[in-house]
Design a protein around this nucleic acid. Structure first.
Length: 577
DNA sequence: GCCGTTTTCGGCCCGACTGTTTTCAGTCG
């Protein structure tokens, strides 16, 4: 059993314990452990065998034992017994907005409700309103929540969510008395997908902001409306939480609502050690200690971290994955920025499945201010993507050389290919043709259902091919759409490091592959990254922002990313690769 | 269930809003 499966079991245990009104801290312990497992990049089987599980954060003697049991036998009697004690369909009830463990319990106990269907029926018959602690309003809210249950469970790509947030941010900024507007939450932390939008406003007249916001044309339903907090549902289905604070509270609130929750808990514990209680409104001294840190008028997030004797921690890093410890030691990374990017390599044209032709793509790259630009259309086996034959690729190489000679185009154009890795691990073009290219991206587009061993071997074989420069979208995942194919990522990373091959960070918003959680450790071991965008149209070059976001989330510095190199240096690197 | 310049017990971040109830529990983030 792998860590993903074990983490899922721990999450379910937490849900079940919660339904039984168990100690909430015990519940949290299981959730923390699940998270810790998912974020660890170590070999679980090895740790279970040789000990060391307890070194993972949030895993003590008891949970280490349970993990070992699951790894070795695939079973956990404790979990099985727990599952038998509660109908599993009841877990679904918890996902209905407004239903927490207490209400679900009451519904089960008094009305024998075990499923969403039974809940709906009871609501329609007016039975829920009659229960103690419930009422007509609660019943209506439950029925409402049930109606769009599935749509409301949905997550959104970061890119799409940002598109939904933008008009709201713009509108808020224009309001009278509004001093500051910022996006917060997972969107600000640049998580690859988000479940809702958090917006923070500093305003002189909160009532005006609430009024404008709740009457926005994008809003379909108001979920909660107070003086400083409003929650709405947009027509697209996504929930937006708006908080209004005073200007002097803004930095504290921004820090708090940016999260993550785990980061906040850590920071607050840190603060308590200093004798201060930290909330979204400021520091409160505990006992007699006074706070001398804030004499300035305008407080920024930097000042809050500084008061805790920490350097500023970028939002992307705030996941409690070691950033606070690194900050304490002065070892935070100097994160890559969009301005550091000098060009990208994975780009398609109308020659294969792109929407813009070669010259349009190169002109768009010039507009981005890039020094160089790689063209990598699909290879012949990708028939579905109009992959190039050897002859067509040969002609494209000539065309690119001509563009470079013409002197009419700003960026230097590198001729490459996104070459299919065939099911047996061989490449889709002959060595002699591959040798003529400036670079080769090797990617999987077929036989996606191979087992892990075969797939890993297949990719490593491609990595070992001398013509391959880098590996394209390592796991083939399409966020919220298609699971990654089965591959031993650590073994592939090892092979890339050993063969001096680069792994692409595919910045296309629905890929963002390889996953940001893996980059930090991989880069520390010497893996090089290339932030690509897999652009299929000129306007998609903007995706570089998403790629840089994820690189930053993965703690990547400029030094680990080859496309921050100047043209001269990258030419040098490619000629030796 | 975890964790430890409050270290093997007793904490575990903190506040807004809603609805039902009449002072607050439950839910959410």
């Amino acid at each position: 059993m792998d860590k993903k499966e074990i983490a899922a079991i721990f999450e379910e245990v937490a849900d079940l314990l919660e339904l039984k009104s168990e100690n909430p801290f015990r519940v949290r312990a299981y959730r923390n452990a699940a998270r810790s497992l998912l974020n660890s990049d170590q070999d679980l089987k090895k740790m279970a065998r040789e000990g060391g599980l307890e070194e993972l954060e949030g895993i003590g003697k008891d949970l280490a034992e349970k993990i070992t049991q699951l790894v070795e036998t695939g079973r956990l009697p404790f979990y099985e017994k727990l599952k038998r004690s509660i109908p599993s369909s009841m877990l679904k009830l918890r996902q209905v907005q407004g239903l927490g463990p207490k209400k679900v319990q009451a519904l089960h106990k008094k009305l024998k409700i075990k499923s969403l269907a039974q809940l709906k029926k009871a609501g329609k018959e007016g039975k829920i309103a009659k229960l103690k602690g419930f009422g007509v309003k609660t019943e209506q809210n439950i029925l409402q929540a049930l109606e769009h249950h599935e749509a409301y469970q949905k997550r959104y790509l970061w890119w799409d969510a940002m598109g939904l947030a933008r008009p709201l941010l713009e509108g808020l900024k224009k309001l009278k008395g509004v001093k500051r507007v910022e996006i917060a939450g997972s969107l600000r932390r640049k998580l690859e997908t988000v479940g809702d939008l958090d917006i923070l406003v500093a305003a002189l007249n909160p009532k005006l902001v609430v009024k404008w916001f709740t009457s926005c044309k994008e809003v379909s339903r108001i979920l909660a409306q107070g003086e400083t907090k409003v929650s709405v549902r947009l027509k697209e289905g996504i929930q937006v939480d708006l908080r209004i604070v005073s200007e002097s509270q803004f930095a504290f609130a921004l820090c708090y609502f940016t999260g993550s929750k785990e980061h906040n808990i850590k920071i607050r514990q840190h603060s308590l050690k200093k004798g201060w209680s930290l909330s979204e409104y400021g520091f409160e001294p505990i006992g007699k200690k006074s706070i001398a840190a804030f004499k300035k008028k305008r407080i920024e997030e930097e000042d809050i971290y500084k008061a805790l004797s920490l350097p500023y921690i970028e939002p992307e890093l705030r996941e409690n994955l070691g950033e606070i410890e690194a900050a304490e030691k002065g070892k935070l990374p100097c994160l890559v920025e969009e301005e550091d990017i000098k060009g990208t390599f994975h780009n398609h044209t109308t020659a294969s499945d792109g929407k813009s032709n070669l010259k349009e793509m190169v002109r768009a790259a010039a507009k981005m201010g890039w020094e160089y630009f790689g063209i990598s259309d699909h290879s012949k086996s990708s028939v579905q993507a109009n992959g190039l034959s050897e002859e067509r690729l040969f002609n494209q190489i000539e065309e690119i050389r001509k563009i470079n000679r013409s002197g009419q185009f700003e960026p230097y154009v590198f001729a490459g290919t996104e070459c299919d890795i065939l099911p047996d691990g061989t490449l889709d073009f002959s060595d002699s043709l591959l040798n003529q290219l400036d670079f080769v991206i090797a990617s999987i587009h077929s036989a996606l259902t191979q087992d892990e061993k075969t797939m890993t071997k297949r990719i490593i074989r491609a990595v070992e091919h001398p013509s391959v420069t880098m590996l394209g979208h390592l796991t083939g995942r399409l966020l919220l759409k298609r699971e990654p194919y089965k591959v031993n990522v650590q073994k592939v990373i090892d092979a890339c490091i050993a063969n001096h091959k680069i792994i692409e960070l595919n910045g296309n918003p629905q890929r963002l592959d390889m996953d940001w959680r893996l980059w930090r450790a991989a880069a520390e071991r010497g893996l090089l990254c290339c932030i690509n965008i897999d652009a299929h149209a000129a306007d998609q070059l903007q995706f570089i922002k998403a790629g840089v976001n994820i690189a930053r989330k993965g703690w990547l510095e400029k030094e680990s990313i080859i496309n921050t190199l100047s043209l001269k240096k990258i030419k040098n690197l490619l000629s030796f690769a």
